[in-house]
Design a binder for these strands. Structure first.
Lengths: 334, 334
DNA sequence: CTGAAAGCGCTAACAA
DNA sequence: TTGTTAGCGCTTTCAG
């Protein structure tokens, strides 16, 4: 591997164009008031040398960077990757590149990444917090870094937030299961340290209470992961009187539950009906196809990016909350 | 949003600890030879101020950063996200954070990101190149940035590479289809500008030629995306004598093909058998479950990260190529 | 309109 | 062992 020539600096360009570094900077940053002839020389010299300004140095000087950090809890969950696409497309159109960090639902990893992100002086942060009340974003916010929360709320912090109406989505799912005649409807929700886990449980509970059917013994708190959904479903099927339906609060846990039910030799939806949260391209090809509450993932990312841009551009209004709608997609599983 | 106090700098810590900035730097970087008492004062002062060194400034000074760039062609493809997890886990254990860039199979986006990455002076780059012969990584390599290619080879560049034995995987898939009695076996491969697309086609072709069954009219070059797989499958089914089997060169195109076949009212595998590349958690729950060539995705990421670390640590041997094995997982679709 | 000079926050030579 | 000094590559006053 040929470790070759030092990369050109602004001084090299200045020398070649026979101007000062300041002029090179002005030309390359598009500031006007530079003689057209000099500007031409600068551009030529820069092109000949293959010059690209060093973003590190520039960031140090300007105290800002053209990077966004996106901190999500699970890079392997298509819900988040789709959201990231939305964020990225907006960011890119404004010249930002995206640094993606994966916390794996771990508060510890989240703290580490927040520290890295603070040290990197990113222009803004979009985060799906691992916890409602323990996320360590205080210092970042205090120092004025624009932050937008997605998918989950953060307590005690005034940050812009984009999420869906989780309780409403859960209600739609539960009502649907009631409407097809199910009477022992279980719920596998995510961590109750997240607003998403709490609100989906809340919507489920409200629905069943309205029908006088709520039974706490049919509720399981899990972790938004496939294994967790599997274990909770197994647990529910071990009950003396097992449920005849399950509402599962995200895509990965739904897959785990489906796996568990099939492993038990039970049929979906005949023995156990299943309604999940989050839609997927493959959800209509499973056996049976999955009834789900779909979220506008890409749009969620776009909106988060828009809020971030507004803050970066200096908007100082009170924290906003954007709530998007979900949609029940009835297929075969429930 | 309270835009509060300026973040503490090394000078603030030095002042508070009544030492020089150099001493603070030495203590915080763990260089020995510092009086224990001073060191203690420094650590206390740093803690009290909540001081964290500015990575931007540090990178400018040291000419290196603790960030890796991972450039992939599709963030929505679980193959890549799983690889990224492998890279990330290794990187994190050595203190690197990962900046993920998504090129969407576009050479233009790839070039932009490569420029960004070069400007950011990242410590290393892992890339899944959008093209075999047009990827613009030359300058990066020439400037001595460690680069590792994954999943696909790059021509004319001496870079470490980690991939699977694609031709072998394709052969296994094709042989399997032959062994279950199929005679008109089609192939939907990815871009022939990628070695992956070419090699999977090659394996397929070699297999069929050995059986005297190769028929060029049954080959389609597509784009590794769901839509592309869908379109190619439709196209193949429109043939006067349609195929009785399809080998599809990645997960997303396989999903697209399945969709197309079902839309035509044909049954899998009775009318058309289907074997895909890449396994997924949901592949055994589709109707029918999918026969696939599985790749060791996480391991692929780990190995790529290991090679990158070796280069960063100064290893100067000739470029290496690590080739991992695939595994045929026979299920119901073929 | 252009250049000289200062300085972003840090580390690494060099002195003391 | 510690401090002083210089400088990474850039932008941005401030003079001219």
């Amino acid at each position: 591997m040929a470790r070759s020539e030092r990369r050109p600096t602004i001084a090299d360009v200045a020398e070649r164009a026979r101007v000062s570094a300041a002029t090179v900077s002005r030309v390359l940053n598009g500031l006007d008031g530079v003689n057209e002839e000099l500007a031409l020389r600068v551009r030529e010299a820069a092109a000949e040398l293959g010059y690209r300004p060093d973003e590190i140095a520039r960031s140090l000087r300007t105290q800002r960077s053209m990077t966004w950090a996106v901190i999500i809890t699970d890079i392997q969950n298509s819900f988040y990757t789709s959201v990231v696409r939305g964020i990225e497309d907006v960011g890119r159109s404004r010249g930002y590149s995206v640094m993606l960090c994966n916390t794996d639902e771990s508060l510890e990893k989240e703290s580490e990444y927040l520290a890295v992100v603070a040290a990197a002086r990113v222009a803004g942060v979009v985060i799906s917090p691992a916890s409602w009340d323990e996320s360590d974003i205080g210092t970042l916010v205090d120092r004025g870094t624009p932050v937008v929360a997605i998918d989950r709320r953060i307590s005690h912090q005034e940050v812009d937030t984009v999420l869906v109406d989780n309780a409403d989505g859960a209600r739609k799912a539960t009502e649907h299961l009631v409407s097809i005649g199910r009477r022992r409807i279980a719920c596998i929700t995510g961590s109750l340290h997240t607003t998403t886990g709490r609100e989906r449980l809340l919507g489920y509970r409200q629905s069943l209470e309205a029908h006088g059917m709520y039974d706490e013994s049919l509720v399981r708190e899990s972790d938004f992961k496939e294994e967790g959904g599997h274990a909770s479903a197994m647990d529910l099927m071990d009950l003396e009187t097992p449920p005849d339906a399950m509402f599962v609060a995200n895509n990965l846990m739904t897959l785990g539950a489906l796996e568990a039910i099939k492993a038990r030799g039970l049929r979906v939806p005949d023995d156990v009906a299943l309604v999940g949260f989050d839609d997927e391209p493959w959800a209509e090809f499973t056996q049976p196809s999955l009834t789900v509450v779909a979220q506008p993932t890409y749009e969620l990312g776009r909106q988060a990016a828009d809020l971030l841009l507004a803050r970066i551009d200096g908007e100082t209004s009170a924290a906003r909350e954007v709530i998007l709608r979900t949609e029940l997609r009835v297929r075969e599983s429930g």
